[in-house]
Structure formats: C-alpha cells, structure tokens
Design a protein around this nucleic acid. Structure first.
Length: 271
DNA sequence: AAAAGCCCCTGGATGC
DNA sequence: TGCATCCAGGGGCTTT
C-alpha cells in the first residue's frame, strides 16, 4: 500500500499531536517482519520528540533512541484517544499520555524497530542504502542521470529499488513514467539526459500532488485520523488495464516486471 | 557485482 | 456454498 505519499500523509496526520508525549505502555501483538529489538517496557517513560520520514519509513524520535516504523504492503497507523481493545490485525501499540499510536497490518510485512541512534547498526541496515529524497530539494538531475547510467535493468525496476531515489512504489512508478512519456521497460542506462530530467520532474510532480490529495486509497489505506486518500482517482494508467488512456484513448497495457504489475500506454510512452 | 527470483502473510475477487 | 487460483501499495535475502 503505502508509498511515499501515503507515509507522508500518515506522518502529517499525527506528528504534531504526538510530539512531546510521554510513553505510558507498549503492546506487541503477532510478529511483524522484524522483532522490535528492545524490551518493550524499556520504552515506557521516554518522551516523543517528533516524527520524521525517510523514504517509506517513519522515524519516531524519542528523547533516547528512535523507533523505525514501516507499513509494508498493508499497514496503516491510527493515533487517537480511543483505547478500544486491539482488533484482529492490530499488531503494535505505542501508548502515550497524548493518545494511542496503533499499527494495523493484516499481511504483517510491516515492522517497528528500535534503534539506539540513527547511526546504529540496526538503523543503518534499514536506511543505509536508501537513495535521495525526492521532495526536499536535493533530487538533482546530475546525480539521477549518473545513477541511471550505471543501471542495466528496466527503468521501472530501478525506481522501485529505491537506491537512486526513495519513495516511488508500484503505483507512482507507473504514473511517473507515464507523465514522462517513458516506456517502463526501457533500460535505465539508455535514458538520455533530457528524458531523465522529464522523469525526475514527473516523480516530484506526481508524489507532491499525491500528498496533497491525501495519498491513494486502493483498498484500505487511511491516515492516522482514519481519512482516506483520493489520488487514485487521478491515476492515468495504474490499475487501468484495458481502459482507454486518458490522453490518447489507446487501451492501457498491463505487463509483469519482477513479479509486479506495470501499467503503461504504448502510444504515449516511447521506448 | 549486478540482476533476477523467491519469499514472508492475509484476504478479497473471480472462476468452476 | 465450497474450493482453487490469482492478485495486492514492499523489500530483504538467495540464487544466478
């Protein structure tokens, strides 16, 4: 589910409300992708300084250490004063004097991991290989094009890998490549500098607009206040196989790339 | 060393 | 109604 826009929308929906809170309890449910990495009770009494985002991770800074949250494919957070008993897929609670932060994740590909500091081994393992942030002004053409030229695989796969630029998942990779007019199967190292810049700008554009629309709710995404997103209504190609391209009318094509679906328009997107 | 494949897990939609 | 199959927003690890 959650790509950069959904993670950022989630962050924005509770960061201010949890800042300054004191941890009063931690509940660990069924196992997630990785173990928490600390004794849950050892977090009690710590103060939440704030919430940042790195790629698709949320970083909950504590006065000592931090928690790395990942929503996997099906995760969502809720932050509220409602302390009803955990439901079937509620697998992690961080209770505070300002509200309860609860992770719901049916598929359990998500995780909450404790790191003693950002440079710690646990943090480096998860964050160390991540590429540049696309929305903070540091996503420049020179670095992006140089990175593309080093990769021999399909450009869509390179975007998904997140080592050049973070946050672009399966929806927004297809959408950005459509906006840039680039066929997803094109080898990354064959992309000219002008086309790389088109793609860079398309990524920034599509991710920014998705954040402003509250993300995409395909099945069950909602932010920490329970609100859905609406960007899926503006998708040009994603999940639109067989339907007419919004630009030219050609039926949208669906292919498989690395066991994931890719959608594109054969007319609008050039090899 | 890079690239491709394989899993982790649950549930909803579809087909017989 | 029941059961099998396919598909889903991610990404680390193993195999080529």
């Amino acid at each position: 589910m959650p790509e950069l826009p959904e993670v950022e929308v989630t962050r924005l929906s509770f960061a201010d409300r949890i800042a300054g809170a004191r941890v009063t309890g931690v509940r660990v449910g069924k196992p997630l992708r990785w173990p928490l990495g600390c004794v849950p009770a050892s977090l009690v009494g710590r103060r939440v300084r704030g919430v940042r985002r790195r790629g698709k991770y949320l970083l909950v800074d504590l006065d000592e250490g931090l928690l790395l949250w990942h929503l996997g494919m099906s995760g969502s957070l809720r932050f509220s004063h409602d302390r009803t008993p955990p439901q079937t897929h509620d697998h992690f609670d961080l209770d505070t004097n300002q509200g309860l932060l609860r992770l719901n994740d049916p598929r359990r590909f998500g995780a909450v991991v404790y790191a003693s500091h950002e440079g710690s081994q646990e943090a480096i393992k998860l964050l160390g290989h991540l590429g540049v942030e696309p929305l903070n002004g540091h996503f420049d053409l020179a670095g992006f094009h140089a990175g593309l030229r080093k990769r021999h695989s399909a450009v869509k796969q390179v975007l998904l890998a997140g080592e050049l630029v973070v946050g672009v998942g399966n929806i927004y990779a297809s959408e950005a490549l459509f906006l840039a007019g680039i066929r997803p199967t094109v080898r990354a190292d064959r992309i000219s500098r002008p086309r790389a810049d088109k793609l860079r700008l398309a990524i920034i554009d599509v991710l920014s607009r998705a954040v402003s629309k509250g993300g995409s709710t395909l099945r069950d995404f909602s932010n920490a206040e329970g609100q859905q997103g609406y960007f899926q209504l503006e998708a040009h190609v994603y999940d639109r196989a067989g339907q007419p391209c919004r630009a030219c009318g050609t039926p949208v094509r669906r292919i498989q790339q690395g066991q994931r679906s890719t959608y594109y328009c054969v007319t609008c997107q050039k090899p």
